[in-house]
Design a protein around this nucleic acid. Structure first.
Length: 200
DNA sequence: ACGCGGATGGCCT
DNA sequence: GGCCATCCGCGTA
C-alpha cells in the first residue's frame, strides 16, 4: 500500500519551458501539476485553468505599471513565481514567462486537488465540496497556503514548483476571454481543460 | 439558478 | 481618491 504522504518524483518544467509567449505557456501548463511542500506536507493538484498576461503592451497586465515594489518579480527570469495581493484580502500566483526583465506571466486560475486535501479543507472551511477548494485563483492560494513568502521563488527549484504530469489535447481545451479585468476584455487568453467525468 | 454588493487594504495617480 | 487578474452571502426566482 502506498503511504498517504508518498508523492511520485516527477521532473519540474524547466526554465526554458517558460521562456516563450505567455499564451503558449498558459496553454501548455494545462495538465501540469502544481506542488507545494511545506511543514504541513505536500499539497498538489493538476492545473486546469490559466490566463496569459502578455507584458507591458497588454493593458490588463500588471507590467503596465512598470517595475514597482509590487510587480518586482513579474519582471524576473522565466519560471519565477509572481504572487500578488488583491482586493485587500486575496493572493494570486503567476508563472513568469519570457526573458528576464520582460514582464509577462501566466495566472494559475484553477487546480484539481490531488494531495493534501485534508489540509486544504482546514484552510478553506467554506468550501462545501472538494471541487470548490481550488476553483479560483485566490481559492487555490488559500488552500495551498501561498502568500507573500512565495513571491519571487523559483517554480523550477523551490518548495513551490510545477512538475510534468500529462498533456491535455486540443479538443479538451476551451479558449475564451479573461475574467475580472476591464481592459482588453475580448482578448482570448483564458485556457480551461474540460474535466472529463466531472460530477455536476 | 443567478445577480448584486460588501469586505478590505495596498498601490498608483 | 479610486481602482482592483476575488470571494461569498444574500436577495429574488
Amino acid at each position: 500500500m502506498i503511504p498517504s504522504d508518498h508523492v511520485e518524483p516527477r521532473p519540474s518544467l524547466p526554465a526554458h519551458f517558460y521562456n516563450r509567449d505567455a499564451a503558449l505557456v498558459a496553454r501548455e501548463l494545462l495538465g501540469a501539476e502544481l506542488r507545494f511542500s511545506s511543514a504541513h506536507g505536500v499539497i498538489s493538484g493538476v492545473i486546469v485553468e490559466t490566463e496569459a498576461y502578455l507584458g507591458p503592451h497588454d493593458p490588463a497586465c500588471h507590467a503596465t505599471a512598470g517595475r514597482t515594489a509590487r510587480t518586482w518579480h513579474l519582471f524576473g527570469p522565466p519560471g519565477t513565481a509572481y504572487v500578488y495581493f488583491v482586493y485587500g484580502m486575496h493572493w494570486c500566483v503567476n508563472a513568469v514567462t519570457r526573458e528576464d526583465g520582460f514582464g509577462s506571466a501566466v495566472l494559475i486560475r484553477a487546480v484539481q486537488p490531488l494531495r493534501g486535501i485534508e489540509t486544504m479543507r482546514e484552510r478553506r472551511p467554506k468550501a462545501r465540496r472538494d471541487a470548490d477548494l481550488c476553483n479560483g485563483p485566490a481559492k487555490l492560494c488559500a488552500a495551498y497556503g501561498i502568500s507573500r513568502a512565495q513571491d519571487g521563488v523559483s517554480l523550477v527549484n523551490s518548495a513551490l514548483r510545477i512538475v510534468e504530469r500529462e498533456s491535455v489535447p486540443d479538443e479538451h481545451v476551451i479558449v475564451g476571454p479573461r475574467v475580472g479585468i476591464s481592459k482588453a476584455v475580448d482578448w482570448p487568453l483564458r485556457f480551461r481543460a474540460v474535466e472529463i467525468g466531472a460530477v455536476p
